[in-house]
Structures are given as structure tokens and as C-alpha cells.
Computed example of a mutant assay.
Amino acid sequence: MSNTKGPKPPPFEPELAAILPAFAAYTPINMTADQIEKYRAMPAPSISDQIGDQPVQCIDFTIPGYQGVDMVVSVISRKDHSKPGPGIYHIHGGGMVMADRFAGAYDLVAWAMKFDAVCVTVEYRRAPENPDPIPVEDCYAGLEWMASHSKELLVNPERIIIFGGSAGGGLSAGTTLLARDRKGPKLFGQLLQCPMIDDRDETVSSRQIQGIGIWDRISNLTGWTALLGARRGTKNVSIYAAPARATDLSGLPPTFIDVGSAEVFRDEDVAYASAIWAAGGDAELHVWGGAFHGFSHIAPDAAISRAANAAREAWLERLLSR
């Protein structure tokens, strides 16, 4: 399929373009609300598959979410973790409507091994069954639980980093703003992969990517409408639901943002990094030329994906060396 309505999109990087057809059957392009269940039902790697034979454990806890409703978090750590170390609080992606807490857990397993990090991943309630503010408030409740149980989890409470991609990146940004404004857990950093942060869909990139790539304009509108209903695109949307609406990005922890040049979220993510800089903050931004949404997880062996994953891990390593 191709973009027939919006401005001409940038080209896909050749190695990534060659990979795209293999994912056509699994790609949420032109996704409408009636197709959400179809994409939810698609198979995904289990946490056991992602751990493999590495000496890493995954332990589930049931904790109170927003308004006291039970939710599950999983704690992923080395089996021999024995002293307080860095904490990584993970919020999964899925367009606000799909996937579960183990989506993208390969990174958590790798960082548990490399940094002896304790990683907590949250099963927040998804839209449309649970509209805003439930998802972001669930995520904030999970962060508060992690911080308040840092002693038992063997986490250094001064070194908790929030991490999420796509919708999880947007929810991570929103949770970080909640933590700042409520004077809640003090975050050591925020790592945002291609974050979904603007419900208004007014940018050039949001209009360029339609009917192509991995996640397009129609799917994006579906995800935001599931979350916000009739409020989508109006003035009645909080900065915690759509962090791109924030006019004050001061007081945030060091931030890493990466995004592809050929995806819906490019312009809103570049603007978010710029707004952090304008507020005197610390942000590192990478825009990967010709990359589609989620490229580094979908095609991890591509040269551009290896470069992106290395850059992300290098930032994390530098941050944790402070």
C-alpha cells in the first residue's frame, strides 16, 4: 500500500524496506476499532522465550492500581541479584489498546544481565475498555509501588529509570510529568522509544505515513480515539494523556528519545526534545533516517537497528555511570 492522501513520505531505508513485506499480515495499518481484537490475538513471545537459558527470574505481584483496582506487575532480575542496584520501570507499547507487560521484555532481560538492574513491568489497563485517565494512572500507581518497595526489591530508589516505547513511551512521559507535578518518585532518567505523545495528529509526519510502514495515521487515530473518545483533538485533554500538550517541560530527568524519520511520531518527538532543551533540560535525540515505527525491535539485525540499539544502550550506560 502507499500514501495517497497526505504529503509525500520520506523513503524507507533499503534494508528495512526489504523486510517490510514479511510483516504485512501482522502490521496494524489502517486499523479501525473493530480490528483491535484481531491484533490483540496475534501471538507474541512469552517471557520464558525472552529469558531463554539466561540466569534471570520473573516474579509476579498483584498490587493496587488506579482507584485501588488490582493489577499485576512483574519483577525481572538476575537470579543472583543481592544488593541494591538500578531500577528500570517499564511500560509496554501497543497503541494504547494492544499487547501486554511482556512486550519488548528482551531489553529488560538484557539490562538485568548487563547492569544488574531490577526491572518492573506493569500490566496497565488498556483502552477502549479503560479510557483515560486509567492507563496513565495505573502506570503511576505501579511506579509508586516500585519506589515504596525499593528496599524489598533491592532497588536504589535514587536510580529508577522509566522506559517505554510507542504508547508505552507516551505513558512513560505522562507518568514522568505526574511524578514531577505530584512530587512523587524522583526519576533518574526517562528512556522514550518512538513515543506516542500527541493526540492532535496535526504534524507533517502524521499526515505522511498513511497506508505504509508499521503504524500509520489511521491506526494512530484509532488508538487515540480509543483512549480519549470524543475528547481527542479538543482542548479537554490533559498533558498526562498527551504529553506533547505540555507547555512546561522543566524539572524532568535526563531524557533519551529516538524515532524513525519515516514514522507518524517523528515530528511530535522532535518537538518534545526541543521543548525539553528550551526549558533548560537534558535530552538526547536520535532520528534514524528511513526507519519505520518500531524498527529496532522488528528488525534487530538490520544495520540501522544495531546502531539504534547501541546508541540507546550507550546512553543508559553513561547515565548509570554517573
Results as ranks from 00 to 15, higher is better:
F102H: 12
F102E: 05
D199I: 10
I91K: 06
R125M: 08
Q190N: 03
D282Y: 10
A241W: 05
I88W: 03
A99Q: 07
R101W: 09
G189T: 03
Q210T: 11
T4F: 12
A310P: 00
F61E: 07
D258G: 01
I19P: 03
A18R: 14
K151V: 11
G168N: 01
R200G: 13
D116W: 00
Q50D: 04
M196C: 07
T255D: 11
T62W: 01
L153M: 15
I29P: 03
D80F: 01
I218T: 13
P14W: 09
N130G: 05
P128R: 05
L108A: 10
A110H: 07
L143G: 04
F12S: 00
Y26I: 08
G289T: 08
S238Q: 04
Y106V: 15
A22F: 12
A302G: 00
L178I: 15
F115Q: 04
A308V: 04
Y272N: 03
N309M: 06
A41G: 13
N236A: 15
P45Y: 08
H92M: 02
V155L: 12
G94S: 00
G93N: 10
N236I: 15
D199M: 10
A314N: 09
I304L: 06
G281Q: 07
I88K: 06
I161E: 03
W288H: 15
E263D: 12
F265A: 08
G211W: 15
L187G: 13
V264P: 05
A303R: 03
G211Y: 14
S148G: 05
A25P: 01
Q50T: 04
D107G: 03
G68H: 05
I88M: 11
V69S: 13
N220E: 13
R312D: 01
P9R: 07
R322S: 14
N156F: 10
A279F: 00
A246P: 01
D80K: 02
P21C: 10
M146H: 11
N130E: 02
C119H: 12
I91V: 13
P157K: 09
W145A: 01
G184Q: 12
P86H: 04
F163R: 05
L249T: 09
A226N: 10
T62D: 15
R306M: 10
A242V: 08
G189A: 14
S305E: 06
A242H: 08
I36K: 14
R78V: 07
D269M: 00
L319Y: 01
R200N: 13
R217D: 14
P28I: 08
K83E: 14
G142D: 09
S48I: 10
V109C: 15
I51N: 02
R217T: 13
A105W: 09
V97C: 15
P185H: 12
A103T: 04
Y39D: 06
L177K: 09
T203G: 02
I197Y: 06
G94E: 02
G165Y: 06
Y272K: 05
G68F: 06
S82N: 11
T121N: 14
A167K: 02
